[in-house]
């Protein structure tokens, strides 16, 4: 399964990348922000998106809305991984149609749990 990890923090991309590899996913593409991610969506065969919220140029929320607005990516799994843990944030992300939500700092177990939950519903 090919993952797209979107985060402006190099550290976080690396940590998510390591966590994914640790749970058995080796195909990982990285993007620095929503705009970069959109470009990669059209050039790579992405099957699962893990995105941060707070990013320059295009936030994770805007990116999610843009992805959902395109019919071909309408049902592409999106997992939001962010520091934003307020109720309103989760609501907003759900309204933008993310499939699940992880609050930083997270453990690889939580990441795996959420990915599994999403994949089970597909």
């Amino acid at each position: 399964m090919k993952f797209l990890v979107v985060d402006d923090s190099q550290t976080m991309r690396r940590i998510v990348n390591n966590a994914l590899k640790g749970i058995g996913y080796d195909e990982i593409i990285e993007a620095e922000d929503g705009k970069d991610a959109i470009a990669k969506l059209y050039t790579e065969k992405i099957e699962f998106i893990i995105t941060d919220w707070n990013m320059p140029n295009m936030s994770g929320l805007e990116f999610t809305k843009a992805v959902r607005a395109d019919e071909q990516f309408n049902s592409l799994p999106i997992l939001m991984v962010t520091t934003r843990g307020m109720k309103e944030d989760v609501m907003e992300a759900l309204q933008a149609r993310v499939n699940n939500y992880v609050v930083k700092p997270f453990t690889p177990q939580v990441l795996k749990e959420k990915i599994d939950q999403i994949l089970k519903t597909l």
């Binding site: 923090s9 550290t11 976080m12 940590i15 390591n18 640790g22 520091t83 930083k104 700092p105 690889p108």
Partner: peptide, 15 residues
Amino acid sequence: NDIMISLQVQDITSQ
């Protein structure tokens, strides 16, 4: 692995 989780603090403090 635990250290790796703790390193997420870098992203949080930078925010």
